[in-house]
């Protein structure tokens, strides 16, 4: 299982959780699992064609998946994956 770390602006859609445990062998599996567990998050991450929205950044460890294999980037048990908001993103105060 992989730990997906959720940025503050998206925690509204994960029941306040800052980390979600997801299964799968690549990023697309992890995101499918996330959106199955929390369907309300889906339109924030994917466009109408089902593609990852262009400003959504995912890091496996230190590496942005845009510099690896995109949503086909492999993940393994114990990996920590981080969803990064745009830097002016908000905190629910």
């Amino acid at each position: 299982m992989t730990t997906l770390r959720i940025p503050t602006p998206l925690r509204t859609y994960t029941g306040g959780k800052s980390e979600v445990t997801v299964g799968g062998v690549k990023i697309s599996d992890a995101l499918n699992d996330l959106t199955t567990q929390f369907p309300a998050i889906k339109p924030h991450l994917f466009n109408e064609s089902g593609e990852l929205r262009p400003f959504v950044n995912l890091f496996v460890g230190e590496h942005n998946i845009k510099d690896l294999q995109g949503v086909d980037t492999p993940i393994k048990d114990g990996d920590k994956v981080m969803l990064i908001p745009s830097i002016a993103g908000g905190r629910t105060s």
Binding site: T12, R91, T92
Partner: peptide, 20 residues
């Protein structure tokens, strides 16, 4: 403002969900 709390408009804030 951006249309949602999670956005890619650097430097801009979605006021309803940000520290005002």
């Amino acid at each position: 403002q951006p249309d949602a709390p999670f956005h890619g408009l650097e430097g801009l804030k979605h006021m309803p969900s940000a520290i005002k």
